[in-house]
Design a protein around this nucleic acid. Structure first.
Lengths: 145, 145
DNA sequence: GCTTGCCTTTGAGCGCACTCGAAGGCATAC
DNA sequence: GTATGCCTTCGAGTGCGCTCAAAGGCAAGC
């Protein structure tokens, strides 16, 4: 099998869920893993639980096309913001169901947006505490916790 | 037993790890749970795994003083930023060991700070994707994933 | 034709952070 | 004195998201 030369997916493009145009049309599972930063184990797991469906080549090997890749990248973005896998699955089921489900999809994303904003706030708060501790340890300064 | 009237701890004060001055000197586990937003179960768990030590009153009931409360709040801040409990425990062990461990404590906090910044970045990225989806669903607009 | 390496499926196992249940003690209310 | 409600300890159970192991197939290199 050829050397793995698939570049990890660009963060900018990721934000908009467009894949780099120089990606091969079809990737093996190892290449998909390299491109997405997931492990082959995790890619199989995501397929098994129905988050994505993946073609097979003549030998029965997985063959990831752009659609599959795009979806996986989308899933990783949602996972990176701690959306539960079940919720992601539900959303993607709605996508599969097609037209008519947009209002619910919108509601899901709006709710998730609120969750992200809460998380951002919590993290800022934790960052403040951490900086406070760092400041306390950095000069010869006073009491620690 | 008296009604629970302990106010949840203020977020501003939380940031700097100072408790409101109108908190009772000693809190029952139910009051501590109310003040910190944790459950009594979780408070017992944190004590059991050595994150905090808590006094007992004459009847053997837990009695949380300001020191214990402050530490618990600190732990919740670190947990809110996903610091693993084992890492928190390690840090607090260093605190218990007292002088001489400051450099390692500083290093831990600096590493944690870097982790928080990464998380913030990831969340911003996820927020962008989420907003993108929301925008796609909100007017009568085009293709969804 | 055999080794090597990547692939397949299925099912089980793991680590983390809680979360709960059982069995019983204390103290106030009646 | 007994019911109520909050408390105790200890050990076990849960849910999530992977992660790994076993047993075997395919295909290129020697």
């Amino acid at each position: 099998m050829a050397e793995l030369l698939v570049a990890p997916i660009d963060l900018q493009l990721l934000g908009l869920l467009e894949l780099p145009s120089d990606l091969p049309e079809r990737l093996s599972i190892a290449e998909a893993a390299e491109a997405t930063g997931l492990t082959a184990h995790t890619l199989r797991y995501y397929e098994r639980i129905g988050l994505v469906s993946v073609d097979r080549d003549e030998s029965g090997y997985r063959s990831y096309d752009r659609h599959a890749l795009t979806r996986i990248v989308f899933v990783t973005r949602l996972r990176a913001s701690d959306m539960p896998i079940a919720a992601i699955g539900h959303y993607l089921d709605l996508v599969e169901q097609g037209p008519g489900t947009e209002p619910e999809r919108l509601a899901i994303m709006q709710a998730h947006r609120a969750t992200i904003l809460r998380r951002l706030h919590d993290l800022q708060s934790a960052l403040a505490v951490t900086d406070y501790k760092i400041a306390a340890y950095t000069p010869e300064s006073g009491r620690s916790l």
